[in-house]
Structure formats: C-alpha cells, structure tokens
C-alpha cells in the first residue's frame, strides 16, 4: 500500500477535478445539444432529449453552467497556464508528439500544448458565452452585434469542438496514465516525470524541506 502511494503523485485536488468535469461536462453537453439544434439531420438528439424546445433550454442552461465553470477554471488555472519562454521551444518541436525529439524543455505543471488549449478554451469559451448571451436576447442589442454573435457562436463552437477532440485524445488513449489525473487525482511518479518534471521536482523539494 505504502509502496503504491510512494509511486503515485497527487496531481489534482478535488476542487480542480470538479471544476474540470463541470467545464468538460457542460461543454460536451452544449456541444451535443448545440449540434442537435444546428443540424436538422441530427434529429435523434432532440428526439432523445424530449424535443427541440427542451433542448434549447438545456443548451442555455448548460451554457450557463459552462460559463461559471469557465470563469472558475480561468481563475484557478491561469497562473499555471501562463506562458513562459521555454514554451516556444516546446511548440517548435510539436511537444514531441509528431516526430522524435530529444531536447524538449522540461515542463512545469502544464506543457505549452495544454496551455494553448486552456487559452483557446478561455478565449473562445468567453466568446461563445458572450455571443450566447446575445443570442438569448438578440433584440436587446444592436442588429449588427446580434447578427455577428450567431456567426461567432458557431465559429467558437467549431474551435472549441475541434480542440475538445484533441484534448480527449491526448487526455485518454493518446497519453496513457493521464486520465487518472482527472479521476482519482493520482498519477504515477513516472507519468509526472514525463509530463511535468519541473513541478514534480519543485514539489518534492518542497515536501523534503518541510
């Protein structure tokens, strides 16, 4: 037992995990319902959920959840996701995902890809929320604002949706051992050494000091 604990590192706390899943869940649900609204060919979605009218409100509702989760996630992760000079190198090498590289700069908590994803989600998430708010009550806004909100909403959905798929892949089968970070919160030390060596080092230093 102790051995296991020794080999594992607690990478996330419960609040983080709750926030993540709220964000992810609402996002996914919005995506799902949004697609159901946008594509008449995907009628099975409203059929499944009790009709398009209900889906409209579900979408709005989960959008609101998404907005709060996003705001919380932003506050929570913005420090960890602040860019640093080494991130450029990481990106230049595609994070080692696309071709073999050897000199990836050691990552602190999140690698540049994750950071990028985070910021895309923040920016497009904000856009999708704001445009969504306009779409909720378009007549309260100037007509140009209202009209472009629809386009922006769709564009943001496109961006977030696509990144979401990447995130899903990399967070699951693309990077075995990662998924636990958002389930139990514990990852193996080895995983940490691969994905967040600097953070691990700092953490271990801190804990030995204490």
């Amino acid at each position: 037992m102790s051995g296991k604990i020794q080999n594992m590192v607690r990478v996330t706390d419960p609040i983080e995990r709750i926030a993540h899943w709220l964000l992810a869940g609402s996002c996914l649900f919005c995506l799902f319902t949004g697609l159901g609204i946008m594509f008449r060919s995907w009628e099975f979605i409203p059929e499944l959920l009790g009709g398009l009218y209900a889906v409209k409100w579900m979408h709005i509702f989960s959008g609101v959840v998404f907005a709060f989760a996003l705001a919380y996630a932003y506050v929570m992760w913005k420090k960890d996701c602040a860019f640093e000079p080494d991130d450029a190198k990481w990106i230049a090498q595609g994070g080692g995902y696309l071709w073999k590289t050897n000199n990836l700069p050691p990552v602190y908590k999140y690698n540049a890809g994750q950071k990028l994803f985070f910021w895309f989600v923040v920016v497009f998430g904000a856009l999708i929320v704001l445009s969504g708010l306009v779409m909720w009550n378009p007549t309260a806004f100037p007509i140009a604002v209202a009209r472009w909100s629809y386009a922006l909403h769709a564009l943001s959905a496109l961006v977030i949706g696509s990144f979401f798929v990447v995130h899903l892949y990399l967070g699951t089968i693309g990077n075995p051992g990662t998924f636990q970070a958002m389930t139990t919160g514990w990852c193996s030390r080895a995983w940490c050494e691969t994905h967040c060596p600097r953070w691990l080092a700092e953490r271990e230093k801190g804990s030995s000091e204490s």
Partner: peptide, 12 residues
Amino acid sequence: FKPFTLIGMGAV
C-alpha cells in the same frame, strides 16, 4: 462555420 464544425471535429 456550420459545416466546418463537423468537418473540423471529424478531421481532428
């Protein structure tokens, strides 16, 4: 944007 939502997600 509408078609690209599917195309984008599918492509990715």
